[in-house]
């Protein structure tokens, strides 16, 4: 842990809101994106990311520093999001149509802003839309590991710590997730898949 992060952590533990905000500044976008990936809906992801940080703030005085702060942050994020998913399953309020619609809208804005030229942009956007849908169709177990690995760039060991899973389970879930993605992509958009990234 960096020196400055340690100092901020100590201050945050004593309830200093400003120090806490500085401490989590670099995590906000990642936590939001992780929540977005798990929950599949922009507005809900924002709410859950907020809830995650409120919980972290409340619990930070109990943070024992046995794991790294980032691992702890992502662990709480995944717990908050998975709890929410379970609750929704119980309450049956999930609207898949709406989720996909939301994501499409978000994707579009994001891709356009990168401005790589109209054709390429359209193609990339299409690929991303398909991949986005494919990831959303994965079971939550697989979706979480693939997000932590490929979107957050965590090592297998970090993922194992974050999710409190054995290393072997992480490894097999990542492999299964990618095979499942491949299956979806090949069946849905074979040409597109072939033409993409070399």
């Amino acid at each position: 842990m960096e020196h400055s992060e340690q100092i901020l952590l100590e201050k945050a533990k004593s309830g200093d809101v400003a120090a806490f905000e500085e401490l989590i500044d670099s995590y906000q976008k990642k936590v939001f994106n992780l929540a977005l990936r798990i929950i599949g809906n922009y507005d809900d992801a924002a709410d859950l990311a907020q809830e995650t940080f409120v919980r972290i703030y409340k619990a930070i005085s109990n943070f024992k520093e046995q794991s790294s702060f980032s691992t702890w942050v992502y662990r709480i994020t995944t717990n908050v999001c998975l709890d929410e998913l379970r609750r929704r399953k119980n309450k049956k309020v999930v609207s898949l149509d709406e989720d996909i619609h939301m994501n499409d809208g978000d994707m579009k804005r994001q891709v356009m802003s990168e401005d790589p030229g109209p054709d390429e942009a359209a193609e990339r956007e299409e690929v991303r839309r398909v991949v986005n849908d494919a990831i959303n169709k994965l079971s939550e177990d697989l979706r979480v590991v693939i997000t932590l690995r490929d979107l957050q760039g965590m090592s297998y060991e970090e993922i194992a710590k974050t999710l409190d899973l054995p290393g072997g389970t992480v490894k097999s879930r990542i492999n299964r997730a990618r095979l499942a993605l491949k299956k979806v992509l090949l069946s849905e958009r074979e040409l597109l898949f072939e033409g993409y990234v070399k």
């Binding site: 905000e21 906000q28 976008k29 990642k30 939001f32 994106n33 977005l36 922009y42 507005d43 924002a46 990311a49 907020q50 978000d106 994707m107 994001q110 891709v111 990168e114 990339r124 690929v127 991303r128 991949v131 986005n132 990831i135 693939i146 490929d150 979107l151 760039g153 990618r178 993605l181 491949k182 992509l185 898949f193 993409y196 990234v197 070399k198």
Partner: peptide
């Protein structure tokens, strides 16, 4: 290829007013 595609997925910006 799958991995490259996944990694190229854009990170979304924080919603306005989030902070």
């Amino acid at each position: 290829r799958i991995i490259a595609i996944c990694r190229s997925m854009p990170q979304q910006e924080l919603p306005e007013g989030f902070k």
